[in-house]
Simulated assay, not measured.
Amino acid sequence: MLGSYIASAFATLLVMVDPIFLSALFLGVTTGMSDEHRREVAFRASAIAFGILVVAGLMGAQLLTLLGISLSAFRIAGGLLLLWSAAEMVFDHRSQRRADAAKTAITVDHVKNVAAFPLAIPLMAGPGAITAMILLAGRAENRVDYLAALLAVVAIIIIACYVAFRLAERISVTMGVTGRAVLSRLLGIILAALAVQFVIDGVTKLLNP
């Protein structure tokens, strides 16, 4: 059902992108910028990430076909990758890795390229989010309404990121470190369940072609 597909896509991408957590990193990579520059960085990062995820969703399956990889095999591999990401969230390894990437960008590129790196890549449109897009697009099975719904979900998630960036200071004060840690672990558990479902779907397709 389309409704179930939309709910699954929204939950998966929301957990993988995690706008609330990204808002804290946004503050870090834009330290010292004016409000105008922060707005520009937020917009550019959102636009770049949206483009990357849309391309992954629309062309990822064709790339797999060219490489001779079945969608079922990718579902299993992708599910295992998402499960690893979920474990990192639960045990708080992903937040540390993302924070390290943000610090590296400040040192190397400082202001000019932070919209592209690390905000758009790999924080917003990272390997996990790109994998999720390919898997979700595969579940759509070339149905136009499902693909349109997926692109709409991506747009909503990216808009949520932009809003989170613009409200980053307020979110940081309201939630605090403890609030973000609790939310990250809860989202990690949800992602783990979704990842296992991807693996189950892949195995089922292999056994019942």
Rank of each mutant, 00 (worst) to 15 (best):
L2W: 05
A7V: 12
S8K: 15
L14I: 01
F21Y: 07
S23V: 02
A24G: 08
A24W: 03
L25I: 10
L25S: 06
L25V: 05
F26E: 02
L27C: 08
G28M: 14
V29Q: 04
T30M: 00
T30V: 04
T31C: 00
G32Q: 02
G32W: 03
G32T: 04
G32S: 07
D35Y: 13
E36W: 13
E36H: 13
R38I: 04
R44M: 03
A45K: 01
S46Y: 09
A47S: 15
A47R: 15
A47T: 14
I48S: 03
I48M: 03
F50P: 08
I52A: 11
G57Y: 09
M59W: 11
G60F: 03
L63C: 06
L64S: 02
L66M: 09
L67K: 10
L67M: 15
S72E: 09
I76P: 03
G78R: 02
S85T: 12
A87T: 13
E88I: 12
E88Q: 15
M89S: 04
M89C: 05
V90C: 04
F91E: 10
H93A: 14
R94L: 14
Q96P: 02
A99C: 07
A101E: 12
K103R: 15
K103E: 14
T107C: 00
T107E: 01
V108F: 12
N113S: 11
V114N: 01
A115I: 06
A116R: 05
F117M: 02
L119A: 01
A120D: 02
I121Y: 07
P122I: 15
A125H: 02
A125L: 07
P127Q: 08
P127W: 05
G128Q: 01
G128H: 07
G128Y: 01
G128C: 09
I130S: 07
I130A: 06
M133D: 00
I134P: 04
L135K: 12
L135E: 05
N142G: 13
N142L: 12
N142R: 12
R143M: 15
R143E: 15
V144M: 12
D145R: 09
Y146Q: 12
A149Q: 06
L150Q: 04
A152I: 15
V154P: 10
A155K: 00
I156D: 13
I156E: 10
I157S: 08
I159Y: 01
A160C: 07
C161T: 10
V163L: 08
L167D: 12
A168M: 11
R170C: 04
T174S: 14
M175W: 09
G176V: 00
R180Q: 09
L183T: 04
S184M: 15
L186R: 01
G188Q: 01
G188A: 01
I189L: 11
I190P: 10
I190R: 05
L194W: 07
V196A: 14
V196I: 14
F198Y: 00
V199G: 08
I200F: 06
G202Q: 00
K205N: 07
P209Y: 11
P209R: 10
P209G: 08
